[in-house]
């Protein structure tokens, strides 16, 4: 009789990488629906197009690297990257923009570093920053969110806008972060009256998108796919920063904590970007620090920097700091007096 020989342990836990990736995608679905609700079909087309490009790019590089396709494509990491990027850029962006972004994310952001698990930077954020710097106009042309139930753009309109290059100028407008940033004359209350779509709390657009991301994040927490440390670190830091520097609702306002927590990519960043295990810190303590760093940098870039939102930049900056954070948060091994930091002494 043939008995199987294997190394111990012979039991294993339930979490599997493929499962983790699938759950992340599931958690993104509510936000996708809300985006579709407010921005039309463009959001869905974005996601689907990005997925196709991502899988194509991954397959292309895997073929070049002579790796088995099915095994690596199945792990779902390329899809997650595609979804995150698709949902971070304006819905209805032209096809070539997403094509460039996703290919860059997969090829340069991930595979050139050696594939999944090897990339020092979050591929989606890397591509986002590349697009933002290279194509600032396209990247800030967000459709104006429409009132509930009003389809801003039909499916055919979206497809035409994306693939045929039809102008969508008439539809676009600045995001709230842009508005607050550029505004130098109006108080916050006046701003919101002038542009009702931007008012967070009355229920249009951005806030709902952020709340949907929050819901997805809570789902991941509940499923024990992510730990609470990084999101809490980031949101707490962002909240504290905006509270500390909140200078009222006057015309020079930086915006209230609630405004900051619920606009831009705050929630998406907190639950889907800083929780990326590959490019983040490893230990729980490290994750708190990592998240807090992203929160602080995000606020600084939003308020005093040159770009309306700073999650992507902040994440990349903290990605660079992750090894240092790991170094300083190294735990003390049982039986040792203090953690052994640094490199082994070479002879």
């Amino acid at each position: 009789m043939a008995l199987i020989r294997q190394t111990s342990p012979h039991a294993s836990g339930k979490n599997h990488t493929n499962h983790i990736m699938r759950m992340v995608i599931v958690a993104l679905v509510p936000a996708l629906f809300v985006q579709m609700w407010f921005f039309g079909w463009g959001a869905l087309v974005n996601v689907l197009w990005c997925s196709v490009v991502a899988l194509g790019a991954e397959a292309f590089v895997l073929t070049l690297r002579k790796r088995p396709l099915a095994f690596y494509l199945k792990d779902g990491s390329a899809l997650v990257t595609a979804w995150l990027l698709a949902m971070a850029i304006p819905p209805g962006s032209p096809w070539w923009l997403t094509f460039v972004g996703v290919s860059f994310a997969i090829i340069f952001g991930k595979q050139l570093y050696g594939g999944m698990g090897q990339n020092p930077f979050n591929p989606a954020m890397l591509a986002y920053v590349l697009l933002l710097i290279s194509f600032p106009v396209e990247m800030t042309s967000w459709l104006a969110p429409q009132g509930a139930g009003v389809d801003p753009m039909g499916l055919t309109d979206s497809l035409q806008a994306i693939f045929a290059g039809h102008s969508i100028d008439g539809w676009t407008m600045a995001t709230p972060l842009d508005v607050v940033r550029e505004n130098k004359s109006l108080t916050m209350a006046e701003l919101w009256t002038e542009k009702p779509q931007l008012d967070g709390l009355t229920g249009i657009g951005w806030v709902w998108v952020n709340l949907a991301f929050l819901a997805g994040g809570l789902f991941l927490l509940k499923q024990k796919i992510i730990s609470w440390h990084a999101p809490v670190g980031m949101l707490a830091a962002l909240g504290v920063m905006s509270l500390l520097f909140w200078n009222g609702t006057g015309s020079g306002s930086h915006g209230s904590p609630i405004f900051h927590l619920l606009s831009g990519a705050a929630m998406m960043g907190a639950f889907f970007i800083v929780t990326d295990p590959v490019s983040g810190a490893t230990s729980n303590k490290g994750r708190l620090i990592f998240g807090a760093g992203v929160g602080i940098l995000t606020y600084i870039i939003r308020v005093w920097g040159g770009y309306p939102d700073g999650v992507a930049f902040a994440t990349l900056l903290m990605n660079m700091a992750a090894p240092a954070i790991d170094y300083w948060t190294q735990p003390r091994t049982y039986g040792h007096r203090k953690p052994k930091r640094g490199m082994a002494k070479s002879e």
């Binding site: 792990d75 594939g115 295990p277 490893t282 729980n284 994750r287 091994t333 049982y334 039986g335």
Partner: peptide
């Protein structure tokens, strides 16, 4: 599969 640096192993290690 490739290590995704999730850190679950470090959380599970009884001797840190």
């Amino acid at each position: 599969q490739a290590c995704i640096r999730c850190g679950l192993c470090a959380d599970a290690c009884p001797i840190e």
